[in-house]
Design a binder for these strands. Sequence first.
DNA 1: TTATATACATACAGGAAGGTATCTTTACAA
DNA 2: TTGTAAAGATACCTTCCTGTATGTATATAA
Lengths: 208, 208
Amino acid sequence: MARRTKQEADETREALLDAAEQVFLERGVARASLDEIARAAGCTRGAVHWHFRDKLGLFLALDERLVLLQDELRERLCCDPNRPPLEHMAYAISAAMDDLERDPRRKRLLTIMLQRCEYVEEMAPALERRRAADLAFRTTLREHFERAELRGELAPNWKPERAAFFFYALISGFLNEWLRGNAGFELAAEVGPAVCTFLACVAQQPAS
Amino acid sequence: MARRTKQEADETREALLDAAEQVFLERGVARASLDEIARAAGCTRGAVHWHFRDKLGLFLALDERLVLLQDELRERLCCDPNRPPLEHMAYAISAAMDDLERDPRRKRLLTIMLQRCEYVEEMAPALERRRAADLAFRTTLREHFERAELRGELAPNWKPERAAFFFYALISGFLNEWLRGNAGFELAAEVGPAVCTFLACVAQQPAS
DNA sequence: TTATATACATACAGGAAGGTATCTTTACAA
DNA sequence: TTGTAAAGATACCTTCCTGTATGTATATAA
């Protein structure tokens, strides 16, 4: 068919992205064929090439759909500058994990990006996006630990720089293991308490 | 050519694996062609099909070459049952990281397995291997934390189960970030001290 | 010495998939 | 009413790559 209304065209586009998500997840990006994706979306390859130039374009468009955890956490952490930083972080993490667990589409996207695609040169835009998000997130974390230090809420053997990096790796690790699914745990139920315990031990111990 | 000596055949096999390692890393597993790999090894596809049935066989053989970090750490941790567990762990981690950093081949292999291949069904054997190693490693970690608890060397707010899982995710996170290269850090120099600081804070605080 | 299995090389046939180019239909503007 | 461009459908072509089949030379056992 042809020239539908603008809205119908957008629906087609979304349907294609949904289909790509599903097919990429099942078959991997490289082995997924555009024809398969188009058919799953109820149209033909013509529509794919119209909306997204080529396969790479489709992949990158799908990548844009993914709200990165780093960005979400940064968002949650930015406001409220006079709240106890460590407590604030613990809460933000718990909330973000909870969020993630409730959003199966985001989990599927993360799985695709982590285990169903090969990062060669042409994928650089997706990697670059992550890189930038990582950098910004680590900066935010460091600022929070610095504020904690200024407020005397950071144990003396932890320096902000190291604490931030440590924390960052920790989140990354939990997320990876959750996605890989080997450990078989629930994100919010495990990570929240673990992070709290950790932050409690990073916090300055009250004299007892 | 034909029927060379057994040793020469083995050399060919190794050359093919080396070539596969290089080509997989550069082009990703899916986009690498067997012909390209064979040529890089100085032979033809005939040799590939002889030594490793097909592409999947080649990939899995390459996977076997990788000594998993989990297994290495388990090895380092198994002996010496009356050494202080936490200290032992800190040392083992540092040594393993050092080891890894000195072995560029292992890093290349890890990179391939993490960022240059798509885990669809047929890759299951490789995933299963990791799963088993993960499980065993986490068990070992838990045992160590349990011993630490028995010796009164574990802070009361940390339970062995949680500490082990936490520690496991932490290692996984550091390794991933190192491989991804976004953080731009050196493994041994960063991880060792960070892990020590952490273990110090997990350890029972001496009364002060 | 001969036979045979080994260790490849080469040739062949085939499919699958992607890009492009060319229709076709329809919303919408003039 | 008609022209035009958006939104897809179809057709075609070309490129790659894989598996298999077969050829062949040689190490080695008998």
